[in-house]
Nucleic acid binder design. Structure first.
Lengths: 225, 225
DNA sequence: AATATTATCGTCATAAATACAAAAAAATGT
DNA sequence: ACATTTTTTTGTATTTATGACGATAATATT
């Protein structure tokens, strides 16, 4: 039938977010091929015949960044015919939240973190994909405390609150935030204290069980801070 | 590179839900080709080179069911290598909620509604896709009153409550449901009353503005009814 | 010992959710 | 026309969640 071409190239692209230098950052790689040579892009690659989409995303992530075994969620599939200037490439986008301390790959001039608030020009529709991943992250954060994935294994409540404020883009009340977070399943109080600060050390906490989406009640409300 | 085959077949598949005969039903088509010949499947088709995924979904929906201009949302992309027994087909699943009264195509032995609570054996991974769409529909329903999309243009609050109960799978309190729904943006009270019932007629309502996702507060809670 | 900084804690007011039952309206049948 | 039946419609009290708000305690530094 007319126009019924049946095969397309399909890729996975992965938005990897972390908190670094007190800012939400996304991992970008510099393209060394056309199209968009020398432009920044989110890591991605072709889906192989033998692997499903999750596996492809995991593999690409591992190949490009050496990051393994992290929370990876399918975000959305982008299939505009013009999103790739040369051929028809449909991409299944994923997003991941990772701890800066788990990320062992040295950044190079070709692989680097960029603050989401200050992105360079990006290849393809990757700006749109990143923006969508931020929206999704906020939605997740409203529902459950996924922010712990961005924090070190042991973290202070102030650090966690900072992470929330960064992602949600608004200030939160200290007391209300603590009240809320302390009732969260999985959060465990440690008998250790932060050393880094030059002033009063804060108690450290950790997350025991990864119960993503287990909490249905809104975690942080959309409205005013 | 090894195993790096780059082109796949990509389809869109659409879960179309409606309320009919006091039950939540899904539109299925009987396959007349292998694989899964004579098995039921959700409507789907190949994505063409010239169209994006949303357009493909709209077109397929229109072709197979003559339904047009409805709320259609990308659900999830399913890409297991074994989901199709013959070739590698990745499918981008969509879901739609439609009003039974808007659906003008006569059902045939090859296109028919099936109660989601009593599905026949399905082709491919379509059972999984339908289940996922139900989960998503529940999530949407918790957030905003999308159920009106399943109802006739004019509906009674009891009808709406029935729709909610059907989808959420639990009984709701009449008074609390009304209290909640009446505060919803877009709901308009009409000076008309239902005629069908043999007892006291109920007031009819309608939805003015389609403000999907405009309401962030949970609409119906997960917990006990 | 004084100072500066950060962590930690509680209450009140408001809003939202939930549980719960009785009365009014219309249709039907007598 | 009246009684019966069925369905619609409405309110209140209780509990729970949310949001606003400022003071004190702990530690490191000087």
């Amino acid at each position: 039938m007319f126009n019924e071409i049946k095969t397309h190239e399909i890729t996975v692209d992965i938005v990897i977010l972390t908190i670094k230098d007190d800012a939400l950052q996304v991992l970008l790689v510099k393209r060394n091929n056309e199209p968009f040579k020398d432009k920044w892009a989110i890591p991605g690659g072709y889906v192989r015949m033998s692997e499903n989409l999750d596996e492809a995303a995991m593999r690409v992530l591992k190949e490009k960044t050496n990051v393994d075994n992290i929370y990876l969620e399918q975000l959305y599939t982008f299939g505009d015919p013009l999103r790739h200037p040369v051929s028809r490439v449909i991409t299944c986008a994923y997003f991941a939240l990772i701890r800066a301390e788990d990320f062992n790959v040295v950044t190079t001039p070709e692989i680097a973190w960029h603050k989401v608030s200050d992105l360079p020009p990006l290849a393809f529709d990757h700006k749109e994909i990143i923006e969508y991943s931020l929206k999704r992250t906020r939605e997740r954060l409203e529902m459950c405390p996924v922010a712990y994935q961005l924090l070190n294994e042991k973290f202070t409540l102030t650090e966690m609150q900072k992470a929330y404020e960064m992602i949600m883009g608004k200030k939160l009340d200290k007391r209300n935030f603590r009240k809320k977070v302390i009732t969260t399943d999985g959060l465990r109080e440690l008998n250790e204290f932060s050393k880094s600060s030059s002033k009063r050390p804060a108690r450290l906490y950790t997350f025991d069980s990864i119960k993503l989406n287990s909490k249905r009640a809104h975690f942080i409300k959309k409205g005013s801070g």
